[in-house]
Amino acid sequence: MSTQQKKTFTDVAGATPAPLATPAPTAPAALQARIRSLAPSMTRSMQSVAEALAADPAGCATLTVTALAEHTGTSEATVVRTARILGYPGYKELRLALAALAARQDADSTPAVTADITVDDPLADVVAKLAAEERATLADTAAGLDLAALDAAVTALAGARRTDIYGVGASALVAQDLAQKLLRIGLVAHAHSDPHLAMTNAVQLRPGDVAVAVTHSGTTGDVIDPLRAAFERGATTLAVTSRPDSPVTRHADLVLATSAARESTLRPAAMSSRTSQLLVVDCLFVGVAQRTHETAAPALTASYQALIPRHSAR
């Protein structure tokens, strides 16, 4: 996104001006989620540092920048660069966040379930492991959610002439969920999983409209292309992705970052990401319903009444 193209929250929602490219400080509770989301885009040496931080925040919090560099087989400069990518001015601030995260983990009495699901696991273990991962994913997403961006997105959706939502694969289900929720409260919203239809609709958007891209990786061309078309035509654009530094965000006025459970052979990250995406969708929907309550409540009642006969025995 060029300097001329970048928008601020003021352009979208009338909030205090702030360039969207400026990274927000990472709260200790969201640190591990941010490490997981950004690690794939880091260099190998930086990944070594990130992996050490995620694996043992308490131990790393006790290390100096020199000691952590030696522990990870990297350099002090690499450690500092990793800290900055994670949203901290330097290693000192990251170290304080690690200590706070370690204290938070110590205070949590819930036993950790961290083992990957294997083909030999009994169903009881599968249920326990999946439930633990889902809880952690939702907690990480909530902790790392940019509330200023969420507020701006709610404002844009509540006042939009129409909303287009793009997603493919598992993300298409999430796009459909958001569209259906908005339709139930009387707003014009359409979900597009077909790339041709997505582009056809995107080029019809204009200022006052909203385009939403849902993509776990942030690199899905069939989602990026229509979002770029909507952005170029002046629509407010929103990206829901686990990679806040991915290509899709170059064409997004607003970015809402999600967390995904650890990837495994039996559970690809693109599938586990749906849980956190649906949480973001619910946050958007409830926020919009609050802002448009006078019109949303009658519309929701009308939709209930229209569907009641469909749930009755014929």
Rank of each mutant, 00 (worst) to 15 (best):
103 A>P: 10
103 A>H: 10
103 A>L: 12
104 R>T: 08
104 R>L: 09
105 Q>E: 12
105 Q>R: 15
106 D>F: 02
106 D>G: 03
106 D>M: 06
106 D>H: 07
107 A>Y: 07
108 D>E: 04
108 D>T: 01
109 S>K: 04
110 T>G: 00
110 T>E: 05
110 T>K: 03
110 T>L: 07
110 T>P: 01
110 T>N: 00
111 P>W: 03
111 P>S: 12
111 P>M: 11
111 P>F: 06
111 P>N: 11
112 A>H: 10
112 A>V: 15
113 V>R: 11
113 V>Q: 08
113 V>M: 08
113 V>A: 06
113 V>Y: 05
114 T>I: 13
114 T>N: 07
115 A>D: 13
115 A>P: 10
115 A>R: 15
116 D>R: 15
116 D>V: 15
116 D>S: 15
117 I>Q: 08
117 I>F: 02
117 I>P: 07
117 I>E: 08
117 I>V: 15
118 T>K: 12
118 T>R: 14
118 T>I: 12
119 V>G: 09
119 V>A: 15
120 D>Q: 14
120 D>H: 14
120 D>C: 11
120 D>W: 09
120 D>G: 11
120 D>R: 14
120 D>K: 13
122 P>L: 06
123 L>Q: 07
123 L>N: 07
123 L>K: 03
124 A>C: 07
124 A>W: 00
125 D>N: 14
125 D>A: 15
125 D>R: 12
125 D>C: 10
126 V>A: 03
126 V>D: 00
126 V>E: 01
126 V>R: 04
127 V>F: 01
127 V>N: 03
127 V>Q: 08
128 A>G: 05
128 A>H: 04
128 A>M: 05
128 A>E: 11
128 A>R: 12
128 A>I: 03
129 K>F: 09
130 L>P: 07
130 L>H: 09
131 A>Q: 13
131 A>W: 00
131 A>F: 00
131 A>G: 14
132 A>H: 15
132 A>S: 15
132 A>E: 13
133 E>S: 11
133 E>W: 02
133 E>T: 11
134 E>I: 04
134 E>C: 10
134 E>Q: 12
134 E>A: 13
135 R>D: 11
135 R>W: 00
136 A>P: 07
136 A>K: 13
137 T>V: 09
137 T>L: 04
137 T>D: 02
137 T>K: 06
137 T>H: 02
137 T>R: 05
138 L>C: 05
138 L>G: 04
138 L>W: 01
139 A>P: 10
139 A>M: 10
139 A>Q: 12
139 A>Y: 10
140 D>T: 03
140 D>A: 11
140 D>L: 02
140 D>S: 07
140 D>G: 05
142 A>Q: 12
142 A>Y: 04
142 A>F: 06
143 A>G: 03
143 A>V: 06
143 A>W: 06
144 G>V: 06
144 G>D: 05
144 G>A: 08
145 L>N: 08
145 L>R: 05
146 D>K: 05
146 D>P: 09
146 D>V: 03
147 L>I: 13
147 L>Y: 06
148 A>G: 15
148 A>F: 00
148 A>L: 13
148 A>Q: 15
149 A>M: 07
149 A>W: 02
150 L>M: 02
150 L>D: 01
151 D>Q: 01
